[in-house]
Design a binder for these strands. Structure first.
Length: 477
RNA sequence: GCACGGGUGGCAGAGCAGCUAUGCAACGGACUGCAGAUCCGUGGACCCGGGUGCAAAUCCCGGCCCGUGCUCCA
C-alpha cells in the first residue's frame, strides 16, 4: 500500500519513496522559544508526531529532528526587557515546550538541535556560500544574493521576484542596510550594542534567521534528506531561503525530497493573535481541556487544513473522546487486550484506517474508523459478546487510537484511572447504596417526587444514577 | 493588489467524477415513572454563474466570500 504525501514544492500528492530504502530522515522547524508555547505550536508538534508514528508503524526507520531557534530578535527583545540573559529566556520556554508537549503525548524527536550549539557549522556554510559567490560581505553582515539563483525564487509559494519587488520596493536605502537588493537576506548579522555575539571571519555577530535550519538539517540528516516541514507560515521566506542556502551551498537539488506544511489554527474563525485577545497558550487550554481531548481536537482535521478552535469543536471532541475512553476502559477491565486480526470487521476497519493514513496522513478519516470501532465494541459489550471479541476490539483501539494516534492513555494509566475511580467509589459506596435503597423503595411505592429528590441529592454528590433493567447502577462524574 | 489553501446538511468536518462518510443536534422507536446511558431507524448538504463528460460536491473558466503569506531592519 503506497504512502502518498502532499509535497508543497510540486503541489501534488506524491508517493513517498525514501532516499535510502526503509529509512526516512525528517526535519521539522520547531519553535523560537521567546514565549510559552501556544496551541499553534501544539498543532505542529502533534501533526509531525503522528506523521512520524505512522512512518514507523509502516516499518520505516525514522530519524526525526526538531530544532529550537534559541537566538533571535524576539528572544533578545524579551531578554533585554526583563534584564536576563537570552539563554535564560530560551531555556525557560524550552522547558515549557517539553512539559506541555509531553502532556499532549507528543513523542520526543530523536534530536533537538539548537542554533547556539551549531555556530561552527553555520559559519562553515556561510563561508562556503561566500566562496561560491552566492553571498557577499556587507558593512552590517553577510547577505545571500538572490540574483545569483533567481530560478529558485518562489519554489514553495509561487511568488516571483517581481511581485516581491513591488511589495517592498525601495526600502533598502531607507533602512541603511548593506544589502544590494532588498530581497537578499541575512546570513550573518554584525553585532549590535548589548546583543549576544559570536566571533566570526566577518566580525562579531550572530546568525541570521534561516541559515540555522540549513546548517542543522545538514548536520543531522546529511546532504540530501527525505522530508522537511513546519507550519505553513514558514513557507515564505523561511523555507524558500533554506532552499537557496542548502542547494547553492551543496551544489545539487533538491536537497529536500518532500516539503510538508501544517495548517494554522484560528480561534472562533479569526486569526489567533495576541493583539486580538484570542491567544491561547497550551497551558491556558489545558486548564479547561484534558490534554488528550486537546490532542483529539488538533487531529480532528487533516494536518494541512486550518483548524478552527471554538467551543463547539472542543465540546464535540470531549464527547467523542470520552466515549472512546469509556469503551476502551470497559473493554480493558472486561477482557483485556487481544488480537484483532481474526475479526473481519476489525480487519476492515484497519484497512480503511490505513488507507486514510496513507493518503497524506488523513487523521480525520482515521478517527472515523476509531469511532466505528468504539461503536462496535459498545455493541459487543451490550450484547454480552464473548471475551475474545471484546478483547480484539479493545486491542484494535489500543493499537490504532493509542499507539498511532496517541489519544489513549497507556494501558497502565487507563487501569489505574479505573482503579482510582474504584477507590472513589468505595469511599462513598455505603452512603450511595443506602440512598439508592431508599430511592428504590420510594420508586416501588411510586413516590416519584421522593425518588427524584434522592437522585438530585446523589447528583449533588457527583454521582450519576442510571436505571437499567437489572436495577440502578451509578458512576462518578 | 499578488501567491497559496479553502468554501459541503442546524453545527463540526471527510469525500475530490458514478456507490450510506462520521460525530453532535433534530425527529421516530426500543428500554424507562421521568431522566440518563446504550441500541435501532428517519429526514437533511455540496457558495454563485457558465462549460466539458453517459455521469460533477468532485474536472475547466469567471465571479463572490474566508484563511495564510508577501522577509530579518522598518
Amino acid at each position: 500500500m503506497a504512502l502518498r504525501v502532499y509535497d508543497t514544492r510540486s503541489r501534488t500528492k506524491r508517493e513517498l519513496i525514501p532516499l535510502v530504502e526503509g529509512q526516512i530522515g525528517i526535519y521539522a522547524c520547531g519553535i523560537t522559544p521567546y514565549s510559552p508555547s501556544h496551541i499553534g505550536h501544539a498543532r505542529q508538534a502533534v501533526a509531525f508526531d503522528i506523521i512520524v508514528r505512522w512512518l514507523r508503524k509502516s516499518g520505516l526507520k525514522v530519524n526525526y529532528i526538531a530544532n529550537f531557534t534559541d537566538i533571535d530578535d524576539k528572544i533578545i527583545a524579551v531578554s533585554s526587557e526583563e534584564g536576563v540573559d537570552f539563554l535564560e529566556v530560551a531555556n525557560r520556554n524550552i522547558d515549557d515546550y517539553f512539559e506541555v508537549m509531553d502532556a499532549l503525548n507528543v513523542t520526543r524527536a530523536d534530536a533537538y538541535p539548537r542554533v547556539t550549539e551549531t555556530i561552527p557549522e553555520i559559519q562553515e556554510m556561510i563561508t562556503n556560500l561566500i566562496d561560491k559567490g552566492f553571498a557577499y560581505v556587507a558593512k552590517d553582515g553577510v547577505y545571500f544574493e538572490i540574483d545569483t539563483a533567481p530560478e529558485k525564487y518562489g519554489q514553495l509559494t509561487g511568488q516571483t521576484l517581481e511581485m516581491v519587488r513591488e511589495g517592498a520596493g525601495g526600502r533598502v536605502d531607507e533602512t541603511g542596510s548593506g544589502k544590494r537588493d532588498h530581497r537578499d537576506f541575512a546570513l550573518w548579522k554584525s553585532a549590535k550594542e548589548g546583543e549576544p555575539i559570536w566571533e566570526s571571519p566577518w566580525g562579531p555577530g550572530r546568525p541570521g534567521w534561516h541559515i540555522e535550519c540549513s546548517a542543522m538539517s545538514l548536520k543531522h540528516l546529511g546532504e540530501r534528506f527525505d522530508i522537511h516541514g513546519g507550519g505553513s507560515d514558514l513557507m515564505f521566506p523561511h523555507h524558500e531561503a533554506e532552499i537557496f542556502q542548502s542547494e547553492c551551498c551543496l551544489g545539487h537539488d533538491p536537497v529536500v525530497q518532500y516539503w510538508i506544511h501544517n495548517g494554522m489554527i484560528n480561534v472562533d474563525g479569526e486569526k489567533m493573535s495576541k493583539s486580538e485577545g484570542n491567544f491561547w497558550t497550551v497551558r491556558d487550554a489545558l486548564e479547561s481541556i484534558d490534554p488528550l481531548v486537546l490532542r483529539y481536537t488538533l487531529i480532528n482535521a487533516p494536518y494541512r487544513q486550518p483548524v478552527d478552535f471554538n467551543s463547539v469543536m472542543i465540546d464535540d471532541s470531549r464527547l467523542n473522546h470520552g466515549r472512546l475512553l469509556r469503551a476502551y476502559s470497559d473493554g480493558l477491565t472486561m477482557a483485556g487486550i487481544g488480537d484483532w486480526s481474526q475479526n473481519v470487521e476489525l480487519s476492515e476497519a484497519n484497512e480503511r484506517f490505513s488507507l486514510g493514513m496513507n493518503d497524506d496522513f488523513n487523521t480525520r478519516v482515521a478517527l472515523v474508523e476509531v469511532q466505528s470501532v468504539v461503536k462496535l465494541l459498545r455493541q459487543m459489550i451490550d450484547s454480552n459478546s464473548d471475551k475474545s471479541s471484546i478483547s480484539a476490539a479493545t486491542g484494535w483501539l489500543a493499537e490504532f487510537a493509542g499507539e498511532v494516534l496517541g489519544i489513549l492513555p497507556s494501558k497502565e494509566e487507563a487501569l489505574s484511572m479505573s482503579n482510582s475511580e474504584a477507590e472513589a467509589r468505595s469511599a462513598i459506596s455505603s452512603q450511595v447504596e443506602a440512598l439508592l435503597e431508599a430511592r428504590e423503595s420510594a420508586r416501588e411505592s411510586k413516590n416519584w417526587s421522593r425518588a427524584d429528590e434522592i437522585r438530585d441529592e446523589l447528583i449533588s454528590m457527583g454521582v450519576i444514577v442510571e436505571d437499567g433493567a437489572d436495577g440502578p447502577t451509578w458512576r462518578i462524574e
